[in-house]
Design a binder for these strands. Structure first.
Length: 279
DNA sequence: AGTATCTCCTGCGTGC
DNA sequence: TGCACGCAGGAGATAC
């Protein structure tokens, strides 16, 4: 399930292969993703050069335009949804199989192939002339930036009734923290995921912010978490799954106190925590 | 405004 | 073996 570390891993994996390369073709096999892939995207992307590969929240952003004048024409916005991945293919490119919804082909022979069985992902176009973007304009700070700090998050949390876990997964407050890393960060912080965000003390918030940053940074270092679907751009899985302390471990002993890890549902999503260690 | 619920989709595990 | 079912989940849309 691509959260921030998985998107960052993907970005790092694809950028060296496509940076400064010219797009020869954008081939859409299945346009019905979360939103339709715009019909005009292949035409807009053709013969444009990749000027930057960026990430914002869980969005992968590929700025394309003219290499000569270094002007950005627009940005291809890719979201991996919950089962999406991008792979770099070169030489002997295999025929596309089921769920491989589009390819971006480059002049150096590289093909960037998007796979997404559950079709929760997206591939959209943001023209440089457009000044606003509904998806990107109102995103909260990046968790690994200095902007995401104690003063900021503590102020946002005051008087909030919502559970702390729901709170840190809300893109209005911090981006990129999904279901897995929310559970993990709260375990490391010793905070009960059901506690109202507004009731969590400042001291606990300090620990939580540190834990969110640490767990994300460590996961990026390990190439992300692979449970089922996620693979890096080289087709290999990430290794952070081996570091998970509570996620997916319902009934198994807590690594700290040996009592069973509990699984509950919050906002239609499973949460894993240790009732003894997390208060 | 804040919060809770619904929704998109497919593959997989479970139980009968 | 086959089927129905429930679950997984990012986050916008919708409904209170």
């Amino acid at each position: 399930m691509p959260e921030l570390p998985e998107v960052e891993t993907t970005k790092a994996g694809i950028a060296p292969h496509i940076q400064d390369q010219s797009i020869t073709k954008l081939l859409v096999r299945e346009s019905k993703l979360r939103w339709p892939i715009p019909d005009e995207l292949p035409r807009l992307a053709k013969n444009q050069t990749v000027l930057n590969v960026r990430r914002r929240a869980k969005y992968l952003l590929i700025d394309i335009g003219s290499a000569k004048t270094n002007t950005i024409k627009g940005t291809i916005i890719i979201h991996l949804g919950m089962s999406g991945s991008l792979r770099v293919l070169k030489d002997d490119i295999p025929a596309a199989i089921k769920h491989e919804h589009f390819d971006i082909c480059f002049s150096n022979g590289v093909v960037l192939r998007y796979t997404d069985p559950r079709k929760f992902g997206a591939c959209l176009w943001q023209d440089a002339k457009e000044t606003e973007n509904k998806l990107l304009d109102h995103l909260a700070p990046e968790p690994l930036s200095d902007e995401f700090n104690l003063e900021y998050l503590f102020a946002k949390s005051r008087k909030r009734q919502a559970a702390i876990k729901t709170f840190i997964m809300d893109q209005k407050f911090v981006v990129g923290v999904g279901n897995i890393y929310a559970s993990e960060s709260l375990f490391l912080s010793g905070i009960n995921p059901q506690k109202a965000a507004g009731k969590v003390t400042k001291a606990k918030f300090e620990v939580l912010i540190k834990c969110i940053k640490e767990v994300l940074a460590k996961a990026i270092k390990d190439g992300g978490t692979t449970l089922k679907d996620f693979t890096g751009s080289d087709g290999k899985p990430g290794y952070f799954a081996q570091q998970l302390r509570v996620y997916g471990r319902a009934g198994e002993p807590c690594l700290t106190c040996k009592k069973p890890i509990k699984q509950i549902t919050q906002g239609q999503r499973s949460t894993f925590y240790c009732p003894t260690c997390q208060k």
